[in-house]
């Protein structure tokens, strides 16, 4: 989604509408995941519903009242709000993890590494999404560093997630052994 402004197309032909719809799926997916993670410690429904409500309000406002070209303009403010919400969720998960009396071996905890990947990615991408409006008007050649940042964050995200999936698959087998 960071790469939308690398395309530098005129609004009517822009592909921003794909990423705008993708934002909804992103928010749904991350909410489901964090709801599953938080349920082990607290009743997570109020928190998740609050996050969804804030996201929805900002999304609708930006789509219908802020964007001059409606769905053909990327909802960068919503993206920033999504990033902030997910960072806060991640930090809250860490807080619940250390507050809990049970000891968890973090090196092999699938939940921990999934949240770590999410935190690094969204915390790191906040700077890029925050300056979207300014970067949109610049030529592609001058903002190639954005793609380097984007690639670095994606590598971090998927490395952590891959390790998380390995832990998830690995642990039940070692416990059976």
């Amino acid at each position: 989604m960071i790469k939308t402004y690398l395309e530098n197309k005129i609004p009517e032909n822009s592909n921003a509408w794909v990423f705008n719809i993708l934002l909804l799926f992103q928010m749904g997916f991350y909410n489901l995941m964090f709801e599953h993670l938080f349920t082990k410690y607290i009743n997570s429904k109020p928190l998740i519903i609050s996050g969804l409500a804030v996201f929805s309000i900002v999304y609708v406002y930006e789509l219908f009242f802020h964007n001059p070209d409606k769905i053909f303009d990327y909802n960068s403010i919503t993206d920033t709000v999504l990033s902030v919400i997910l960072v806060l969720y991640s930090l809250y998960y860490y807080y619940l993890l250390i507050k809990d009396e049970r000891y968890v071996l973090l090196q092999y905890s699938a939940d921990f590494w999934w949240v770590t990947g999410t935190l690094f990615f969204y915390f790191g991408s906040i700077a890029c999404t925050l300056f979207y409006e300014v970067l949109k008007s610049e030529p592609v050649s001058s903002k190639i560093y954005i793609s380097y940042i984007s690639n670095l964050l994606i590598v971090i995200l998927y490395s952590c997630w891959s390790y998380s999936f390995i832990c998830k698959k690995w642990l039940p087998q070692t416990s059976k052994a």
Partner: peptide, 21 residues
């Protein structure tokens, strides 16, 4: 200026989670 700002901010926002971790 914006390039420097974005790069520095991104670095800071990547180092912070490392300390948290």
């Amino acid at each position: 200026d914006i390039k420097s700002l974005i790069i520095i901010t991104t670095l800071i926002f990547l180092i912070a989670p490392v300390f948290i971790l």
